[in-house]
Amino acid sequence: MRRFLIGTLFLLLLATIIYSCQDAGQIKQDVYYVNGRDLYIKHCQNCHGAKGEGLGTLTPPLTDSVFLKSNREKLACYIKNGIKDSIVINGIKYEGTMPAFPELYDIDIAQLLVYISNSFGNKQGMYTTESVATDLKNCK
């Protein structure tokens, strides 16, 4: 009995250590995600919807994981500079323009991208502020 108790306590301790040692990266991503959600509600939700569902063929949904993945480096440019050409999402063509958000800082864009690319059925991990800065330099 005594041995059992000590054993359980030891295991518990081990579990706690492992849990608290969860990599700092995950915690940072969670922080970005939560902040990103606030920014999304403020700047994006009007048109793209609370579930990223879009609006008719006026506004594309944000649920096309393949698009998000294959255009990963362009996403920051889309937000900062807007979109003027038509784009194809989930096989549907969307015409018209997306407004630019020049007032957003790199870190805002990173947080927004973490939220969007890890919500609405997407799961694409972390965006750092540095990678946003690099992507923005390469905008066409």
Binding site: Q45, N46, C47, G49, L55, L58
Partner: peptide, 13 residues
Amino acid sequence: CTTICPTMHRNMK
């Protein structure tokens, strides 16, 4: 309009 109109029309739809 990208502020309140899309939300209004989403709800109206």
